[in-house]
Amino acid sequence: MRRGIGEEVPRTLPAILRHVLPVWLALLVLLGASLALAYAPLHGLNGAVSLGIAAVKAILVAVFFMNLRRPDPLLRLAGAASLIWMSFLFALTFADLTARAPQTQPQAGQGRDSEPPMRQPF
């Protein structure tokens, strides 16, 4: 039998807490770090840094709270699938967005025509 979702789980509350409390502490530390770094002058890298920290936090939650550390390939596959599909979505949409001719980019703030649309052209 393949080792499915393990039965080798901690059986007592202290054992469980030993598992999860360090993760929680790490998450809070990262939260503090991301808040502090958001105010630091990082020359335009702030966005990348805070998203990077968010990614680390998400991975911590997924691996330790959502039990991805257990050796179940099926669950890892399911978890990875959506990431791959997200990359399809982002990659190809940005392939369009970043390569559009400049005049075909939307331009903000252009008011709609003040005249009402003509309803009866014929």
């Binding site: 190809l92 392939a95 369009d96 967005l97 970043t98 390569a99 559009r100 001719a101 075909t104």
Partner: peptide, 17 residues
């Protein structure tokens, strides 16, 4: 999942996309 943009060839999508 990778071909949706062929619905948008005349939409103003970038020619490279």
């Amino acid at each position: 999942f990778l071909v949706w943009g062929h619905h948008m060839f005349v939409s103003g999508q970038s020619i490279y996309a």
